[in-house]
Computed example of a mutant assay.
Amino acid sequence: MDILLALALPINLFSIAVLAYAIYFRRHRRADLMFAYIALNVGVFTVSAIMLTQNINLGVAFGLFGVLAIIRLRSDSISQREIGYYFIAIALGLVNGIGSSFPVAMILLNLLLLTVMFVADHALVSGGVERRVLVLDFIINEKEGLRADLEQRLDAEVLRLEVDRVDYVRDTMSVDVRYRPRPPHATYAASANNTATTVQLPAIL
């Protein structure tokens, strides 16, 4: 059992490095969450491995990490995507800590989890769609006018918008927007065309 755990440790470290750095950080650039994923994964792996070797009830471990996960998720504002990475980091630690006695199944589960996260969070799957909640210091009641204003501000194609709150006292409104950013070359071309139309050549006498 000790030899299998010693072999499972580098597999776990490699898997969490791929998840936290190669997949998450290179796409989303949040170093604090990358560190949190690695620390959480290594902690889960260590405690689950110790409980396994000492024949301690694993239900206690699951309950402990469930409480820690709830506390962590309530302590900071993170997106649903980052919550997904959070739980996959926990799953990798548990799989590698508890499943070290079944190395083939453990490796296959690692590959499955990493492949699912790589594909599910790829831009080709999401279509480059992003979400943002905007607070505007004006009110537009007409939806198409609001859409046109948001597209100009975000330099993007607005796919869906929903007005969450309108404050007529402060003259503000909160809007939940789903949009697809325009390619940089399209923005540059449009800017070049607009510039070209405003240039006036001197008259030739």
Rank of each mutant, 00 (worst) to 15 (best):
Leu112Pro: 05
Ile139Glu: 01
Ile71Glu: 01
His185Glu: 12
Gly59Phe: 01
Gly66Gln: 07
Arg26Ile: 14
Ile98Ser: 06
Ile23Cys: 03
Thr53Gln: 09
Ser100Lys: 01
Ala192Asn: 14
Gly127Met: 06
Ala49Phe: 03
Ile83Arg: 09
Thr53Gly: 07
Glu162Asn: 14
Phe65Cys: 03
Leu109Asn: 05
Ile56Asp: 07
Asp171Val: 07
Gly63Ser: 14
Ala186Gln: 05
Met106Gln: 05
Gln80Leu: 14
Gln200Leu: 14
Ala91Tyr: 04
Pro181Met: 03
Leu7Arg: 05
Leu113Asn: 03
Leu111Asp: 00
Asn41Trp: 10
Asn55Val: 04
Phe35Met: 13
Ser48Arg: 04
Arg81Asn: 14
Gly63Thr: 06
Leu111Glu: 05
Thr197Glu: 15
His122Trp: 12
Asn57Lys: 12
Val166Pro: 03
Ala8Thr: 02
Ala36Asp: 13
Phe65Val: 03
Leu40Gln: 08
Ser75Arg: 01
Leu150Trp: 06
Leu109Ala: 12
Asn96Ile: 02
Met173Tyr: 04
Val104His: 07
Met34Phe: 10
Asp167Gly: 01
Leu19Ile: 03
Gly63Gln: 09
Ile50Pro: 09
Gln152Pro: 10
Pro103Gly: 02
Asn141Ile: 06
Val175Ser: 02
Ala91Trp: 04
Arg180Tyr: 00
Glu142Asn: 13
Val95Lys: 00
Ile204Leu: 13
Tyr179Cys: 07
Asp171His: 11
Val42Phe: 00
Leu13Cys: 07
Ser100Tyr: 06
Arg165Glu: 07
Ile98Met: 08
Asp155Asn: 13
Arg160Thr: 08
Glu151Asp: 10
His28Leu: 14
Ser15Arg: 00
Ile3Glu: 15
Arg30Leu: 13
Arg72Pro: 05
Leu146Cys: 03
Ala6Gln: 13
Ile140Met: 13
Gly128Cys: 02
Val199Ser: 09
Ile56Asn: 07
Val42Tyr: 02
Ser191Val: 06
Tyr24Trp: 06
Leu73Met: 07
Arg170Lys: 11
Leu136Tyr: 07
Leu150Ile: 05
Gly63Arg: 08
Arg74Ile: 06
Val95Met: 04
Gly127Trp: 04
Asn12Gln: 10
Ala8Ser: 15
Leu9Met: 11
Ile98Gly: 05
Ala196Cys: 11
Val44Tyr: 00
Leu201Tyr: 13
Leu111Phe: 09
Glu157Tyr: 08
Val104Asp: 06
Phe87Ser: 04
Gly66Lys: 03
Ile38Pro: 04
Leu33Asp: 03
Ala196Trp: 09
Val44Gln: 06
Met173Asn: 00
Ile83Ala: 13
Asp76Lys: 12
Met173Ile: 01
Ala20Lys: 02
